[in-house]
Amino acid sequence: MKQSVIVPLTSLFLVLSFCAHTVVADEAEDRGLEIAKEAEAQSQGWSDMQSSMKMVLRNRHGQESIRYMRILTLENQDGGDKSMTIFDRPKDVKGTALLTHAHINKPDDQWLYLPALKRVKRISSRNKSGPFMGSEFAYEDMGSQEIDKYTYRYLRDEPCGENWSCYVSERFPRDRKSGYSRQVSWVDKEHYRIVRVDYYDRKKSLLKTLELGDYRLYLERFWRAHTLTMTNHQTEKSTTLEWEKYAFNVGLTDSDFTRQVLKRAR
């Protein structure tokens, strides 16, 4: 008789403790997702954008090589954004241009224009973990960061950046082709500016750290970092992206993101 009481009590205790645990875990996940959603909401609504970028690649001996490119982006709030990247330097790739039609639930459509051959080539966008232009940024770091591509978990509050109060949370890529097992990000509570991201490789060791700085405000709403440095801890190489010009609402439309326009992009 006694046992019959004890057993249910024990199981009840087990069930309760399990529930408590999942509640805590769910809360952390909900909070993580909330932060990601709020960050996205804060950064949405800019419609279209034109910018140019300098990319400085540094090897472990500090030798630099420099790339220039221009990027046009059209926001699409229901789905994937459209973007066109035109390469200006190194000079041997001048005129090369990449057109991306991003999607949330399927791989992005991508076309590459090769000016020496005058050829537009459909390319596979599945090489997520590959380096972008030989840099420490992978294609997946450069692509559009849609909410549904990850699951989230809030970790803690911590000061970061310019004495800002920040959320620290982690996110886990849903895509098995991702080169990462998880990413830990520091985001400021006031404007949801990303200050730092740690990337962990598939073997769960720290691979890279991205640091974002020189935030400036556009259209009285949108904070944009002007310096992004990605450091690879395993190879000791680093890449800095320096954004040189941001222009919002320049009047780009879908017709600026076609394969025909890709051919005459210079």
């Binding site: 690649l57 090897n59 090589s65 041997d92 790739v93 590959g130 380096p131 030989g134 840099s135």
Partner: peptide
Amino acid sequence: GLRWSGNDSDS
């Protein structure tokens, strides 16, 4: 054909 790309800074 076999195509190798280093994806390095020297392309």
